[in-house]
């Protein structure tokens, strides 16, 4: 008969509460790790300790190379919104409201959030993979042994570049989404560009644009901290890099939606 100390007895199955507890602790540890990383990066901004050439290289890599994908996403987003709104616009003959409706939704919500998600998938994932590979190949440790602070040299330039570039790309994407909406309004509903932009300029306020741009800064910080945190925490070689990229993208998307919820409430 198997005694309680019998080594041959099968391992006890974990209860639901234990499994849930372990998951909660894991999420808390990751959130704590990201907070600590954010504070350590913040400390390096006063006074600024950031590698200038590395910052410029990342601004170019993350910004300029994201222009095509953000542009295409934004144009189609604007167009889709007009297609969806077209039924109601036609039913009520509210042609003048198309510019306001598209502008309000794009500038405040859809533009910043979709561009942030695209940016997370392209730039955030790339950053996690890049830092993750450097971690598993000991390049981060090598920098430390050469008396170089990896956070100032590698991480802070990427974080600053991501925040700055998402802000700029949101302005660019908002503009293209509005152009996409105006063209679709003209082509699909026969609503002229002048009518569209009159509705936009008269009814959409500057605050609507600023509101979306404030959100984009928050999203940029979330993507930057999550992607660099998971990149620096990689363990387990190449498969670990894959897992880190996945975790980074999921954490960024989750963070974007949670931040959006609270910022929408606060900035309403």
């Amino acid at each position: 008969m198997a005694s309680p100390t019998d080594r041959s007895s099968p391992p006890r199955e974990e209860s639901l509460a234990e499994e849930l507890g372990r998951e909660v602790l894991s999420v808390a540890a990751q959130a704590g790790g990201m907070t600590v990383l954010a504070l350590r990066l913040l400390r390096r901004l006063f006074p600024p300790r950031v590698d200038g050439p590395e910052l410029l290289r990342n601004l170019h890599k993350m910004g300029v190379r994201s222009l095509p994908i953000v542009g295409v996403t934004a144009l189609f987003t604007g167009a889709i919104m007009v297609i969806q709104a077209g039924v109601l616009i036609r039913r009520y003959g509210a042609d003048g409201l198309l510019g306001w409706g598209a502008g309000f939704a794009i500038l405040r919500e859809v533009g910043p959030i979709l561009i942030a998600l695209m940016f997370s998938g392209r730039v955030g994932a790339n950053t996690t993979a890049e830092l993750g590979t450097m971690t598993v190949t000991e390049q981060i440790d090598a920098l430390s042994t050469l008396a170089i602070d990896p956070l100032s040299y590698l991480v802070l330039p990427r974080v600053l570049a991501m925040v700055a570039m998402l802000f700029i790309l949101t302005i660019y994407g908002d503009a293209l989404a509005l152009v996409g909406a105006a063209f679709t309004g003209q082509g699909l509903l026969g609503i002229g560009a002048r009518t569209f932009f009159n509705g936009l300029v008269e009814m959409v306020k500057a605050w609507d644009l600023i509101n979306g741009l404030i959100k984009s800064v928050g999203f940029g910080v979330i993507i930057a901290v999550a992607s660099t945190y998971y990149g620096l925490s990689v363990t387990g070689g190449a498969p670990g890099v894959g897992r880190a990229v996945n975790a980074g993208v999921v954490a960024s998307a989750t963070g974007i939606f949670i931040t959006d919820y609270f910022s929408t409430y606060i900035l309403r």
């Binding site: 000991e138 390049q139 440790d141 042994t145 008396a147």
Partner: peptide, 14 residues
């Protein structure tokens, strides 16, 4: 660390 040179197992070339 400025007194050290270090060769890593995986080379760690940048």
């Amino acid at each position: 660390r400025q007194r050290f040179g270090f060769l890593f197992q995986n080379y760690a070339l940048f």
